[in-house]
């Protein structure tokens, strides 16, 4: 029996995890897959295809080619940064689209301006 199984929430982590925690781990997994993609890409192939400049200009240190050398700490940090970025983006996009939603036809305040 594992120590973590003494907690019901931990034993059912896939069900009890919070949305933000889930986003964080999903971001880490995406970073790990991107790092393995960087490992899978042959840099000489990029040279042959004439893409090396595009890659270096676009991503520099953060391109998947650089990610092949990333360690777990870097992947965790990148996952955290990616999750935070997605959360901020969600809030900003939500704030932008929220006023565009039409007010319900029976709502008291049809015009969102208070005098």
């Amino acid at each position: 029996m594992r120590l973590i199984h003494r907690s019901h929430r931990a034993a059912n982590a896939v069900r009890t995890v919070s949305p933000s925690g889930e986003l964080f781990v999903a971001s880490i997994v995406i970073c790990m897959i991107l790092a393995s993609f960087g490992d899978a890409v042959d840099p000489t192939w990029l040279g042959e295809a004439g893409l090396e400049f595009a890659f270096f200009d676009f991503g520099g240190e953060f391109s998947v080619l650089a990610m092949r050398h990333w360690h777990l700490l870097e992947l965790l940090l990148a996952g955290g940064a990616m999750a935070a970025g997605i959360m901020v983006l969600r809030i900003v996009v939500g704030a932008f689209f929220h006023p565009l939603d039409p007010v319900h036809r029976d709502a008291v305040e049809k015009v969102p301006i208070k005098l």
């Binding site: 973590i4 982590a13 889930e22 964080f24």
Partner: peptide
């Protein structure tokens, strides 16, 4: 136990 109970995402990590 308290840590994993509060943050089940630790198990996913």
């Amino acid at each position: 136990i308290k840590l994993v109970d509060r943050y089940p995402s630790v198990i996913l990590v």
